[in-house]
């Protein structure tokens, strides 16, 4: 999977650009590049459902973020970040990376998934639900509770956005 390595490398570069660039609009667009790279990675990993969803979600989240950042002028003076804080963050990230490398060594190798639960779903999807798309069968039939909880979270987030943004309209 050499192409996946190249794609992930490009995504990391895009993430670093999004993090370090001065202009907020360029930063948001670099985040969009990372998201579209993720779409391609989903296609290479045989997940077309996720690729479609990630593509359209990325477009919408770019629209929302650009709406928030366009026209914002950053103050010219440098934001002084304290050196101690910086060292703390570097140490924290390094600790995180070293522990995660240890944890990854315990996982099954890439391309060798165990599929302890998934094989059951694959075997029974056609008989029990008569749906050709197994992912759809799982999210809406076998694991409907998950989707119900997800719908609740989405509802809460929408209500939160409307509640946060509503106040000023009355004031204005």
């Amino acid at each position: 999977m050499i192409e996946l390595h190249v794609l992930l490398g490009l995504m990391i570069i895009g993430a670093i650009v999004a993090m370090e660039i001065e202009d907020l609009l360029s930063s948001v667009i670099a985040l969009g590049a990372v998201g579209f790279g993720l779409t391609l990675a989903f296609l290479l990993l045989r997940a077309p459902d996720l690729a479609i969803t990630q593509l359209v979600v990325e477009i919408l989240s770019l629209i929302i973020l650009i709406r928030a950042t366009v026209g914002v002028k950053l103050p010219r003076e440098k934001i002084r970040s304290r050196i101690g804080y910086f060292i703390f963050a570097v140490i924290f990230v390094a600790l995180f990376l070293s522990f995660s490398v240890k944890a990854i060594a315990q996982l099954p190798l890439f391309g060798d998934s165990l599929m302890r639960i998934g094989s059951q779903y694959v075997a029974e999807a056609k008989i029990k639900t008569a749906a050709a798309n197994i992912v759809s069968a799982i999210i809406l039939d076998f694991r409907g509770y998950d989707t119900l909880g997800e719908a609740t979270v989405l509802f809460t987030a929408v209500i939160g956005v409307l509640a946060v943004l509503r106040k000023s309209r009355k004031q204005a």
């Binding site: 045989r46 996720l50 969803t53 929302i64 599929m115 998934g118 992912v135 694991r143 979270v153 987030a157």
Partner: peptide
């Protein structure tokens, strides 16, 4: 390929969008 993580992540992507909007 294993369909179970795909089903879990499909819902997580849309939640991520709503949380970003919040």
């Amino acid at each position: 390929v294993d369909p179970l993580p795909q089903a879990l992540i499909l819902t997580s992507i849309v939640i991520g969008l709503a949380v970003t909007a919040l």
